[in-house]
Design a protein around this nucleic acid. Structure first.
Length: 258
DNA sequence: ATGGCTGTTCTAAACAGA
């Protein structure tokens, strides 16, 4: 089963790119972030026509996440991360696909540090940690995939010195990410690929893509029962080189079928 | 560097992203 995560930076602006990539890569499950559209405006037709069921949590203008699956979607569908009921931002959706519990997450960016945005990011990570512990307690295969907005280590940035005070790389951010890993999760990409500088995001500015000046911030974390089934994990750089590309590119994780 | 791009939007001399 191929599970992919892709921050599309507006699905309506990117629909041709996303459909072209699906036809090329044929993921079984696609976790989308930054839909930038309301749930009712989600373009289901091109996906359903290709056999994908859709679980969508959208929001006007910003955020928005979805799970697309060509192996069906089973409930219960969880449409928000527990722990802060007043949080209205569309950043979490979780459902079951072929016996695997999968979540699409869009973790807050947190910049600029020094505003309310950074504490919100840290609270969101604490909520995710608590929920990740509950998910592990169930014992089954789980994949938490998405735009984590975390650079885990210096090897995950072309120029780590440029990110030292950034919300994506501050020690507090990396510590919160490690706390989740240490519950028993596996960074699927790092489990199979030790090479530095394997990026999933390149800024639109300053010819960052052409200079390979990127960061690795899109991740799939696997529970032990899922990690035992890893067949491969790779970054697919093809979409980032296309016209009208998102600033992110997909990460794909392949799990052995039961 | 109040820089650099790209998207959505109360079409902005704005705001957010990362």
């Amino acid at each position: 089963m191929k599970i992919a995560t892709f921050n599309v930076n507006s699905l309506r602006a990117r629909i041709d790119n996303v459909v072209a990539w699906i036809e090329r890569a044929e993921p079984d499950v696609l976790l989308l972030q930054e839909l930038k559209c309301e749930t009712a405006a989600f373009p289901r037709e091109p996906f359903e026509a290709r056999g994908y069921a859709c679980a969508v949590v959208g929001q006007k203008s910003w955020n928005g996440v979805a799970i697309l699956s060509r192996r069906g979607i089973d409930g219960p569908v969880l449409e928000r991360l527990p722990g802060e009921p007043e949080d209205e931002q569309a950043r979490y959706v979780e459902a079951t696909v072929a016996g695997v519990r999968v979540a699409a997450i869009y973790l807050p960016n947190g910049n600029p540090v020094g505003t309310e945005k950074y504490p919100y990011k840290l609270r969101w990570m604490a909520r995710l940690k608590a929920h990740a512990r509950d998910l592990l307690a169930r014992g089954g295969p789980v994949a938490l995939g998405g735009d984590w907005n975390v650079i885990p280590a210096a090897a995950d940035a072309a120029d780590p010195s440029a990110w030292t005070e950034d919300a994506l790389f501050r020690p507090q951010t990396r510590r919160a990410f490690r706390e989740i890993l240490h519950l028993g999760w596996t960074d699927a990409f790092r489990a199979v690929d030790a090479r530095p500088h394997q990026f999933t995001f390149w800024d639109y500015q300053a010819r960052a893509w052409e200079r390979d000046d990127g960061i690795r911030i899109d991740h799939v974390l696997l529970s032990p029962a899922a990690a035992d089934r890893i067949k491969g994990a790779w970054v697919d750089r093809w979409p980032r080189g296309q016209e009208k590309a998102s600033d992110h590119t997909p990460l794909v994780v392949e799990l052995a079928d039961d």
